[in-house]
Write a protein that binds this DNA or RNA. Structure first.
Lengths: 338, 338
DNA sequence: GCATTTCTTGCAACCGGTTGCAATATTCTG
DNA sequence: CAGAATATTGCAACCGGTTGCAAGAAATGC
C-alpha cells in the first residue's frame, strides 16, 4: 500500500540512491534531480519509511517513556510535557506502563527489540536499579524524578528530596508548630524514604519538637484519606502534617474535614509538588513546589545530548524547590527566636 | 552493540533461517536445532529486532495512540487503561500529543513513517474528519470517545452524548428543578455539541421548563469556575446546571461556594464522566457515569480485530450511561406527576 | 582549451530480519 | 526394507531503505 523509494525512483527516472539522498539532510544531490524526485514524491504521496532507514542509520528517533504512575494527576502533566518536548525535537515517545511489572527485564528486552534511541524513566518511586538495567543494556537513559545519588550510575534529573524534607520541617517550625508528623507515600518509594530522612534529620536538630511519621499505601487520594482517618481515630493527631505529596494531602484534608476538624485552625498541612489542583479554591493547599517543567525540559535536553555522546558521565541535575503559601498552614509566628 | 541473528546462527552452527524460524511462531524447526539455537541465543543475550522483521512481515505491533487532551485528569486513567490493554496484547503505544496541532496531516505522515499497525484516536472533542484522515491513509483506526454517526466512515467507540443530554434533563426534572441550564465544554467539541443537542431536544418536550445554556472555554477546572462566576454575577442563576463534564463541574462547584451559595440547597449540579475525583468526599458530585473501562476495552478489541480484517465495515459501538447519585442534587420529588 | 578539482550519480553491498523453494533427512506404510 | 509421505534445512531473494566507492559530469584554474 504505501509508496516505496523504488517507485519514486522509477517515476523520477533516477536511481534509488538519488531518491534516498534527496530525503537525507546534507547529502549531495543536484538541484535538477532533487526537483525531479520531489515532484515524483509528491505525486505519489511518498514519505520515507523511518524504520527501514533506522536499520542502516541505527537511529529510530523513538524514546521509551516509562512510568509506573498512572494514578497521580500530576503525571498527566508530566506526560503532556514529555510528549510535547520530545515531539518538538522530532522524537517519538513509545509509552511503557510499568504498573503491573516489578522486574525491568521485560521492558528492557522490549525496548531493545524496538531499538529505541534512549529511555526516560519517569518515576519518583522506582529504585535506581531500574534505570540501571537499561543502561546495562546499552541504552542511554535518564531517570526523571529519580533518587539523587552522590556518585550516580545513571543520569538523574529531579529534586533533592532530603532537602525538601528539611524545608518542610523548617516551614512548620517557623509557624510555631511543635508536634509535627510526616505522612509519607509508600514506604518502598525512594522519594518517600528521602523525604522522611530529611524530615528526621532536620527534626533531630530542632529542640523541643515532637516528631512522628507513618506511611500511606500509595501516592493517592484514598490512601491519604485512609491513613489520616486511622491516625485521627487511634490517637490525638499532630499539630501539623507534612504529606508525601499533594494528592495525598488532598486525601488527608478530606479526612480531617470529615472528622469535623478544620484546616489550618485545628491541624496544619503542607504538601509537595504544587499540582494544579493545589491551587483550586476548595483545596488551597500550602505546598512545596517542584519545578516539573524544568525537570522535564532538562531531562529531554539530557537524553538528546546522550544521543550524540552516549558515554557522557552520569550526572545528577537537581532543581531547587520552594514553598508556595496558601491556606493550609497558619501564618508564620510574629517574633521568631532568631 | 546488540546481538544479531547472524551471530546466533554462527554460534549455533546453523543457517540464519533456522534461527529466524525458532523465533517465529509455528515455523518448522526440529527440537534439536531449536535447542542449539536457544542455547546460543541465551548465551549471547539475543532478542530479535522487531523493526527489522516488520520490514518483511508488515507488522510493527505498534499502535498510534493520539490524544488532544492532556489536561483532564480523566485522561490519565484513559492512558493507563489503553497502555495496559495494548501491552497485554503485545502491542506498543506510540503516543502522539495533538495539543498544538490542528491539522491531522503531520500526524498521519509521522505514523505512516513509523508504519504503525493501527491508530486509536482518543478524544471527545476532535471532529470525525480527523480519524478519517488516518483511514484515508490506509491505517486501521478507531475513534474512542468520538462522535456517533448513523453511517460512520470510521469505527467509533463511545457513548451517545445526545442521550446523555436527555438523561441529564430528565434527572433534573424528576427532582423538581424547573429552571435548568447546560454549562458545556468548548463549543467546538463534538461532545459538547451533542450533549447540548440532547439537552435541548429533551427540554423541548418538557412543559413549563426554562432552558438556558452557555459554554466554558475548555474541559477544565478554571474554565468551569470562570464561566460560573460570570453566570452568577450577570444574572440570577438557574436552579440546576448540567455541566459538560466532571472537571468542569468541580470548577463550577468551587465558583458557587466562593459566591456564598450552597450545593445542592441553592443550586443543583450534575456532571458527566464519573471520574475518580467525583467520589472524593469534598466533591461528592452527582454525575452521569461513562463506562470508560468498557469503552477502552472495546476499542482495543476493535483495533485488534482490524489488524486481521482491515476492511471491516465501520461500526459505532455505544455504551449506556447511568446516573450516579451523590450529593449535588436534591433528592427526587416525592410524588411525580406520572 | 586542457588539466584539475569538485560535484553528482548509479552500482552494489549492507542493515537484520523473513520466506518460497528445492534439496535433504526423517518417519511412515505395507 | 523399499517406496512414499512428511519434516527439516539452507539457499537466495526480498522487505525499504543507506552509503562507500568509482566513474562520469560539471566547474574551476591557468
Amino acid at each position: 500500500m504505501p509508496v516505496t523509494l523504488r517507485e519514486v525512483a522509477e517515476r523520477a527516472g533516477v536511481s534509488r540512491s538519488a531518491v534516498s539522498r534527496t530525503f537525507t539532510e546534507g547529502a549531495s544531490v543536484s538541484l535538477k534531480t532533487r526537483q525531479k524526485v520531489e515532484q515524483a514524491a509528491t505525486e505519489l504521496g511518498y514519505s520515507p519509511n523511518a524504520l527501514a532507514s533506522s536499520l542502516t542509520t541505527g537511529r529510530t528517533k523513538m524514546i521509551g517513556l516509562i512510568s509506573d504512575n498512572f494514578h497521580n494527576p500530576i503525571f498527566l502533566q508530566v506526560f503532556d510535557l514529555f510528549t510535547r518536548g520530545l515531539q518538538d525535537r522530532g522524537l517519538r515517545p513509545l509509552l511503557v506502563n510499568l504498573t503491573d511489572e516489578i522486574d525491568p527485564a521485560n521492558s528492557v528486552r522490549m525496548l531493545q527489540q524496538y531499538s529505541v534511541d534512549g529511555v526516560i524513566v519517569a518515576s519518583s518511586t522506582l529504585p535506581v536499579t531500574f534505570a540501571r538495567a537499561f543502561r546495562d543494556a546499552g541504552m542511554p537513559v535518564v531517570h526523571s524524578f529519580g533518587r539523587h545519588a552522590t556518585s550516580p550510575h545513571v543520569h538523574v534529573v529531579g529534586i533533592d528530596n532530603i532537602a525538601c524534607g528539611r524545608m518542610a520541617v523548617r516551614t512548620l517550625i517557623a509557624r510555631g508548630y511543635r508536634r509535627i508528623a510526616f505522612l509519607g507515600g509508600p514506604k518502598s518509594a525512594t522519594s518517600t524514604q528521602d523525604r522522611l530522612s530529611g524530615f528526621l534529620k532536620e527534626m533531630a536538630e530542632q529542640p523541643d519538637v515532637e516528631a512522628n511519621y507513618s506511611f500511606a499505601s500509595a501516592y493517592a487520594f484514598e490512601a491519604g484519606r485512609a491513613e489520616m482517618i486511622r491516625l485521627l481515630t487511634e490517637a490525638p493527631p499532630a499539630e501539623a502534617y507534612f504529606c508525601g505529596d499533594d494528592v495525598l494531602s488532598i486525601g488527608v484534608l478530606s479526612a480531617i474535614r470529615s472528622h469535623g476538624l478544620r484546616v489550618p485552625e485545628d491541624i496544619g498541612l503542607i504538601g509537595l509538588n504544587d499540582m494544579e489542583m493545589a491551587g483550586w479554591q476548595n483545596v488551597d493547599l500550602t505546598t512545596i513546589r517542584q519545578p516539573i517543567d524544568e525537570i522535564i525540559k532538562s531531562s529531554i535536553d539530557l537524553i538528546v545530548a546522550m544521543l550524540k555522546e552516549p558515554d557522557r558521565a552520569p550526572e545528577a541535575r537537581l532543581f531547587p524547590c520552594e514553598v508556595v503559601e496558601r491556606g493550609t498552614l497558619r501564618p508564620p509566628a510574629r517574633s521568631p527566636s532568631s
